[in-house]
Simulated scan of single mutants.
Amino acid sequence: MDCNILLIEDDMHIGNLTKMFLEAEGYTVNWIEDGSMALNKIDSLKPDLVILDLMLPGKSGVDICREARAFYSGMIMVVTAAEDEMSEVSLFKLGADDYITKPVRGHILVARIEALMRRYKLVQEAEKSLYISDAYGIVVNSENQTAYYEQKPLNLTNSEFEILQLLIENKGKTVSREHCCRVVRGIEYSSYNRSIDMRISGLRKKLIQAEIYNAIIKTVRNQGYRLVKA
């Protein structure tokens, strides 16, 4: 299973053995020993999984886990010693997704990593489905306001993107001019206001410039617009 791991462990022997074992299993592993470097590394590497020892020099694993959750959405597995007083509830409240106690056995660690990554991929797919819409090869991402056709970006204005997203979400159906006006920021609906028509015209030109010939925006007289297969 493809997975980029950041290992934060100050014990040289444990860190070296863990890194070697996980790399032998096909994982990509970056290893640091100092807790004070952890947050910058998590931010720059953006690993799928952080394996985090609680007892670290520079900054404790507890602080790292809590502070990382302000910007990091990947998985965190905490490594605890048997005598650590942190309860399971406390670890999960800090932001940990799982924990494992020392001494860590390799096959158990791998099994836990695989379980976490299955969860992580399900979450990513669920989040992606909330933001991604597509029709006739055109894909829009509402999270970052981008649109693509055959993986090539479309150069759209904000209002053109909003109209395209609306039409894609209602592909094959007529969207009223009033609905378009409500969605596009800065346009007040009026039967005499042609602003939305001008934006539709501009969007049509952008689709032609992008060599999108299998989808067209049809004007439905006295009703609105419809994105259909050409």
Rank of each mutant, 00 (worst) to 15 (best):
C3W: 08
L6C: 00
L7W: 04
E9H: 01
H13Y: 05
I14F: 10
N16A: 09
L17K: 14
K19T: 15
V29P: 02
V29I: 07
W31F: 14
W31R: 11
S36R: 10
M37V: 14
N40K: 13
K41V: 07
S44F: 09
L45V: 15
P47Y: 05
D48W: 09
L49Y: 06
V50Q: 09
I51K: 11
L52C: 15
M55P: 04
L56K: 01
P57G: 09
K59L: 08
C65F: 09
A70E: 15
G74I: 03
M75E: 11
I76P: 02
I76H: 03
M77H: 11
T80R: 11
T80S: 13
M86K: 13
E88H: 15
S90D: 05
F92T: 06
K93D: 01
L94P: 03
I100V: 01
P103I: 15
R105S: 04
A111C: 09
E114V: 00
E114Y: 00
R118H: 05
R119E: 03
S129C: 04
I132C: 08
I132L: 12
N141W: 14
N141I: 11
Q145G: 06
Y149M: 03
E150M: 14
K152M: 13
P153W: 13
P153G: 13
E160R: 13
E160S: 13
I168P: 04
K171S: 02
K171A: 01
K173L: 13
R177P: 04
E178P: 02
R185F: 13
I187Q: 02
E188K: 08
Y189S: 03
S190L: 04
Y192N: 00
I196E: 00
I200T: 00
I200W: 02
K205N: 07
L207E: 00
I208L: 10
I208S: 02
I208E: 08
Y213F: 03
I217F: 10
L227H: 08
A230G: 12
